[in-house]
Design a protein around this nucleic acid. Structure first.
Lengths: 210, 210
DNA sequence: AATGTATATGACTATTTGGTCATTAAAATA
DNA sequence: TATTTTAATGACCAAATAGTCATATACATT
């Protein structure tokens, strides 16, 4: 049996603090955006002093991106899981659509933060962070474009630059999430999922396929 | 003949200043985003002192939204013009796609500002401004959804919530503009216009129509 | 030309806030 | 329990910057 040192009380508390700060940061950033979310608010919300934030995170930007990182990992891994196994490209597209729509339906605040980053922050943050995030997001686009490529090879989809198709799909999904947020729609997401699925497929399906 | 008082030198200069400040603001906001664009930078860029900015605009937010307003008007009126006359819904969709893609191809910086607003600023600005902007953008969505509605009535398009179709179209276009920006694509936009047109139409066209 | 009026200026103020650090408290260790 | 090590605190600092206002300048009017 491996010699597993028990965690000291110190380490347990530290881990707990870290998580509590991240949770608090996610909350405040989502609610107020980057600028309005002050370190004081985040600290207060987490029930620690401001100084403590700096024991666990280098600076505000660092905290921000670590807070996002977690959720983004969760999202990416959900998408990955939904593409496991050897389903048809059609089925995989459906899985992406429904996974993403449902995820953001449950995390509207996080969705806003994502838009926020894409639109604004890469003007206002060190390039370095934006690059890292882009890298993080890349697998998502890669997965989709791979599915499209499969579809092309199998002759289900018509010839198209797979990455562009991936962008199109991603934004089509975003558009309806945005629609739901702006119009405060509450009816089931399934309808919207079906709409996107249909439009996307019709757009890319080869005549006669499936 | 109406008694047209000539503008005094004062008034001419004032109008010139106003325009020069707006132009400068558009430039700096587009390049640096809202936060990083300081009033000092804008003033310097316009070749006036900071105090002068406040003679013409209430505050920074006001200047920002007025700067956007102009471009947005230009955009909306281009879209409107492209929809004038009684073309078929198909032709109109094509006009929207090509007008929008070409406009933003020429105004990438402004496109970023738009994303910026949509994503972030409505967390960080007085609600009031966001509402006004939303109102401003509304005609765009109305025009498109009207075209879709026409198409439905004429039996060209299949039944669909027109406003959702409008959102979908708008974001599909955005997605490829974004793609072009991120991948620094320089090949002609026409290809991308065609792609969107095809996907959108296939998605919404009734079987057998056109 | 002299006087009055509107505009421009930029040093200055007030505030906000990210980040620090000397001090205190708590936990590990001997 | 005494001592050492580590973590937490929050008053404090420095920098940035939106917005102001007394002064200076340019224009209009008589």
């Amino acid at each position: 049996m491996a010699e597993e040192r028990l965690l000291t009380k110190r380490e347990v508390v530290a881990e707990f603090r870290r998580r509590e700060i991240l949770r608090s940061a996610q909350e405040v950033f989502a609610r107020e955006g980057f600028q309005e979310a002050t370190m004081d608010k985040i600290a207060q919300n987490a029930g620690v002093s401001k100084g403590t934030l700096y024991l666990y995170f280098k600076n505000k930007t660092d905290l921000f991106f670590q807070a996002i990182d977690e959720r983004l990992n969760e999202f990416i891994s959900l998408i990955r899981k939904s593409l496991e196994g050897d389903h048809s490209p059609l089925k995989k597209i459906w899985n992406v659509v429904s996974t993403q729509m449902e995820f953001f339906e449950d995390h509207k605040a996080f969705f806003k933060v994502c838009l926020n980053i894409r639109g604004g922050l890469y003007l206002e943050h060190p390039q370095e962070y934006f690059e890292r995030l882009k890298e993080k997001y890349q697998p998502y686009f890669n997965e989709i474009s791979q599915v499209v490529e499969e579809g092309c090879e199998q002759g289900t989809f018509c010839q198209v630059e797979p990455m562009k198709a991936a962008y199109l799909l991603a934004e089509m999904i975003n558009s309806l999430i945005l629609y739901r947020i702006i119009h405060e729609t509450t009816n089931p997401v399934t309808q919207d999922e079906k709409l996107i699925y249909r439009v996307f497929l019709r757009g890319f399906l080869k005549k006669g396929a499936e």
